[in-house]
């Protein structure tokens, strides 16, 4: 039954990742940040901190209900940190006027099935090896 359950879960189309994602770009001196758990679940009212290389806070602000926020660029390079609460956070080093717009087209999908399958194969392999190590000798 559990094997069937596992396979059923695998086939569910409503599987999403649980990870804070962060996307940022700048335009005409303004920084635009978007944070989300999935495309359908924005990081609402999450705290965004812009830190310099000494981890000093340059700016602190919140996302709106769509997980978006914008502010004036505080420096040419800085770290963007998003705190989603309950231990969830994401951060990235940001260089202003970079080609981050291109990244929007290459963002990985929320739930790569190939990685999920890889995870299941690794679990199978790991416990297979464990069984081989732990198995009782048949001709003692």
């Amino acid at each position: 039954m559990l094997r069937i359950s596992v396979l059923s879960l695998l086939l569910l189309s409503s599987l999403w990742a649980h990870k804070v994602n962060l996307f940022a770009y700048d335009e005409e001196g303004k920084l635009y940040v978007q944070s989300y758990f999935t495309q359908s679940s924005p990081c609402k009212q999450c705290i965004i901190k812009l830190l310099d290389e000494n981890q000093t806070e340059l700016l602190v602000f919140n996302t709106d209900d769509e997980g978006k926020a914008s502010t004036k660029l505080p420096a040419a390079t800085f770290t963007i940190l998003v705190e989603a609460g309950m231990g969830h956070q994401a951060q990235t080093h940001y260089v202003a006027q970079s080609h981050t717009k291109e990244e929007a087209k290459t963002l990985p999908s929320d739930m790569p099935l190939d990685k999920m399958l890889l995870g299941l194969v690794i679990i199978l392999f790991f416990f297979g090896v464990l069984y081989w190590i732990k198995r009782k000798p048949r001709h003692a």
Binding site: L2, L9, L15, H18, F37
Partner: peptide
Amino acid sequence: DDEIPKTAVLSALFFLASFIHVPIGPTS
């Protein structure tokens, strides 16, 4: 050794369960 298959199946179940995500309020 006879506990390993059940442990493996439940490990896979736990691994997959975390991907079923429900957005609630400001978090998820």
